[in-house]
Computed example of a mutant assay.
Amino acid sequence: MGATALLVSAALAAPAASAAQGGGHLATRRAVEAAVAAGVPGVTATAEDTHGAWSTTAGVGDLRTGRPRSTADRYRIASITKTFVATVLLQLEAEHRISLDDTVERWLPGVVHGNGNDGRRITVRRLLNHTSGIHDYLADADFQRTYFTEAGFLEHRYDTVGARDLVAIAMRHKPDFAPGTSWNYSNTNYVLAGMVIEKVTGRPYAAEIERRIIGRLRLTATSVPGTKVALPWPSSRAYSKFTDPDGPTYDVTTLNPSFASSAGEMISDSADLDRFYSALLGGKLLPPRQLKEMKTTVDTRIAPNVRYGLGLMDTRLTCGVHVWGHTGGIHGSASEAATTQDGRHSVAVNFNGDWSGETAPVLEGEFC
């Protein structure tokens, strides 16, 4: 998936469609429309604050028909899944069923080993804040060819991949660094975190997310699809250009998300994500001690204004405001959700193309 590309003619021909109510979010609306002008097929965003909810869209949800995006669109949230996974593990810690200082080896004996990998030296905390040193299976060259090239994706888009298989890919590589000595974003950490949840509870991580978060908050548009390949309705099509930003546009809406596993397989909509992050930062999902742990951050290599906690990013905007949330990218989908420290002002945005545009200006528009 590339960086920037020319906007395809079908999207250029479609007028921006806005479902915005009221005029207090002008900068956010302009950022959404600018993303479409820069090449994104379509954008949907919802903000919520003490004045209520506000939504806007721009561009198209279907390049073939010109159907506009909807404020109710459900989409693949990718790595935003990580905040849900970390929340469940911190709930389990609050219940004294696990400690953040437990080793991976204690819960998953023999899983992290070989090529210098040692689960005895890696704690649950280091999984959640990406200081484990475990290699990211997504960076494996064979995995890249299989899922992130046109030919590979078209052949393997419906394959089912097990969590242990994903971890085994990472174990073919030496650690990126000794545990606790540096930071590197690794999806393998959260595949392991999902496996730990299952070992502690005796239930799949998806079932725990559904019971502890989705059901509790009544997130009706949020799901953990497992191996289901379709997006629930309502939804837009999702598009990719793979490695050539100047190449053809491919419809990648249907895929088996098991290759993302507990690192990024979930589906949601913008309103549900606002509700989730507002509840989380507002103290409705975790006791104060666990929420403090989640918000204890380390330096990252993402950007100088971003620090990483336990499945939670602390982003300092240009106006000095700090927001808490996560980004997420998967085939045909780029998303970001964030909320203020008290959880009283939130925004979530999704692009249905993965080759152009950035979500950061939407946050700048909403919070600054």
Rank of each mutant, 00 (worst) to 15 (best):
D101C: 02
T149Y: 11
G152P: 07
G332Y: 04
W54C: 00
D165T: 15
E95G: 01
D299F: 09
I267C: 05
D165S: 15
R307Q: 13
F259K: 12
I80E: 11
L128T: 10
A35G: 04
L127T: 09
V191N: 03
G365E: 00
P232I: 06
K82T: 10
F84A: 12
V36E: 00
S236T: 13
A337N: 00
G353Y: 07
K295P: 08
F259P: 04
L363R: 08
G162W: 13
A206L: 11
S278P: 00
D118P: 04
R289V: 13
S258K: 09
L280H: 02
A86E: 01
R307V: 08
L255T: 15
L217A: 02
A27F: 04
D159G: 13
G61W: 08
S261A: 14
R211E: 15
A151N: 14
I267L: 07
S236R: 01
V60Q: 02
T181P: 10
T57E: 06
W54R: 05
R212I: 12
R164P: 08
G264I: 10
R74M: 11
P232L: 04
R125W: 07
Q144N: 11
A37N: 11
T201Y: 14
D73M: 02
G2D: 10
I330R: 06
A271H: 08
N352V: 11
F242T: 00
L285K: 00
L217M: 07
K174E: 14
D354Q: 10
F153R: 03
H326W: 11
R67I: 03
E150G: 08
G2W: 02
I302R: 12
L192V: 13
A271G: 09
I98R: 01
Y75I: 12
A170N: 03
A58T: 09
R216M: 06
